[in-house]
Design a protein around this nucleic acid. Structure first.
Lengths: 341, 341
DNA sequence: CTGAAAGCGCTTACAG
DNA sequence: CTGAAAGCGCTTACAG
């Protein structure tokens, strides 16, 4: 046998299943079966094939396999901004779950743009993803036959499920705590409604206040920009501070907004919590080290991603069930910005 | 013509090129050419094909195309931890560049584990990525014929290029500033050497000190864990504080380490910078809002990712050139923890 | 300008 | 237990 026949590692191109089969002197059918641990192949044969595969450094082409099996084992994840702590952590959670299940994730960043999101969706479909995790920015168009689960923002009706934070419960904790401190003039720094979390948080804020017998006026809520940017949170807070009767406490609908508010309050030369108390819906990174440490809701970023991934996996395995609605609840982390200590 | 022949959108399975071709009454060859804007097809024909494609909602299967063209337009990015600000931002930078060039990115999280990294590498190769961006954790094995560019950590010799921070220059800024403040007993909280950034930063720290006529002792450097965890930074700082002659200033090799050090100093009831000054190699998130605001080097996370991506793209387009070595330099952000103001 | 044919690298009925 | 054959959905020489 010449070296060519024996299949010394071909340096010029990647070995294919055919190379392995040739080296092991079996058909590609048998080689394929052997490598996939089919019970249909004699142990001795399997051994030969495996050895040949090792020798050649064979790695099956997942793309070719996907094409043939009609299951890509690709899953798509669309987020508004990967560089944001929340989405990065949620992505990580999802990725861990998917990888363990043999799926490869395709991440897309919609840049918080609905059109881009729609395009991302198409790109994912073109890659024949088996399913999608979507933190929508409003560009959702239901794909024909791939299941999508919404996370962060819930997509009413559409999709096979939603996983999000318990916005109502969280807001109850936040506002409730401020109420206990005796505040009555409590203001809100939120995001433009439209996306569900922004809306739910605002609605909950108003509802909790009303239940406490307080009737918040229009002035009591200021909306930042759709990106939930620090800068816009700062601006919104500045507006609150400029009111004839400024609030004695503020709840920010997110960590970024809270940090913006913090900047505005400091810039105004005011003391927290003496002049204005501040609480944040999400715990800012290093929230305990800020000046002052801020009272906030604990984060469950990664868990959110995991839950969403598991939901999708379940659908992929069992077919569409009832749309699942999962809400993860957060706890109050009491620090100093609320007036405690 | 019956509806079947005319190709009303088949709801049960995704339309293929064959469906489009049938609907437009051309061969798949022509359909393919028409959709890819080949000059070889008559305008009228192209129109028919495009119309049919639209009508059916056809989206070409990228996997099939990749198989045929032998260019996946996939690119892999391996990071030690996506949930870390730095890597998330670098990923975003890279992703933007790749997407604009028509590449889809496959992200892998090595969990800072060399074996997992090696596995990630194999997975990427199995997906026939055209190239790889790697922030190595030590598990690199050179793939046969796909170019890899290292970022964050440089991979000596291997790969088609490296992009990293200017560690030496950054350390000069940091230590130099502390020296100007009159400090002589300056300590270091770093990461275990091995990975290049840890090594380079430590070496630079020592070198700069020596050039200033100071001879740092073994005690002056304490190493945290390989994950650069806050907790280990805190521990290392605690050790420094417990020394017979504690340092009057400390440089932390990263933001996380600096935050850990900050915690340790505070816990010891010491004042920054009065009792110990502190500077950080990377600017912590909200570094200006911490108590006290910390002096640090500006971040260029996203830029690092972009540069790395562009380098890979260039290699993909022009073939292997000389291994490129790009270093991005950082500026000193002076705040209060160093003793300024 | 268009079509028939081959083939990318796999998997899987179908025969034996 | 094994192999020859078909086919996943595309693209691209090769003829015409």
């Amino acid at each position: 046998m010449t070296p060519e026949e024996e299949g010394a590692p071909a340096r010029e191109r990647r070995p294919t299943l055919a190379d392995v089969a040739a080296a092991a002197r079996v058909s590609t059918s048998t080689a394929s079966r052997a490598l996939r641990d089919s019970p249909l192949v004699r142990p001795a044969t399997r051994q030969r094939v495996v050895a040949a595969s090792k020798l050649l450094g064979f790695e099956p082409d997942r793309l070719a396999r996907s094409l043939r099996t009609r299951a890509s084992l690709f899953v798509g994840v669309i987020v508004p901004d990967v560089a944001t702590i929340f989405y990065a952590a949620a992505l990580k959670g999802a990725q861990c779950v998917f990888e363990a299940a043999g799926y490869q994730v395709l991440v897309m960043d919609s840049e918080r743009d609905a059109d881009r999101e729609a395009e991302n969706l198409r790109t994912l479909l073109a890659h024949r993803v088996d399913g999608i995790l979507l933190a929508t920015s409003g560009g959702f168009e239901a794909p024909q036959d791939v299941p999508v689960v919404f996370f962060d923002q819930v997509g009413f009706g559409a999709g096979v499920g939603n996983v999000a934070v318990e916005n109502r419960g969280g807001m109850e904790l936040l506002v409730g705590h401020l109420l206990e401190h005796g505040h009555r003039r409590i203001a809100f720094v939120g995001a433009p409604t439209g996306l569900t979390s922004a809306t739910e948080r605002l609605d909950a804020f108003l509802a909790v206040l009303r239940e406490a017998g307080i009737n918040p006026g229009d002035d009591d809520v200021r909306l930042a920009d759709a990106v939930w940017s620090e800068a816009s949170g700062e601006r919104a807070m500045r507006e609150h501070l400029a009111r004839a009767e400024p609030p004695t406490a503020v709840v920010a609908a997110s960590d970024t907004l809270a940090v913006g508010a913090l900047r505005a309050i400091r810039a105004a030369g005011l003391a927290i919590p003496a002049d204005v108390a501040l609480v944040s819906f999400d715990d800012p990174l290093y929230g305990d080290l800020l000046d002052p440490p801020v009272t906030a809701l604990s984060r469950h970023d990664r868990e959110l991603g995991e839950r969403a991934a598991r939901l999708l996996l379940a659908t992929l395995a069992n077919g569409a069930a009832e749309p699942a609605e999962v809400r993860v609840s957060a706890e109050l982390i009491v620090r100093r910005s609320c007036g405690c200590e």
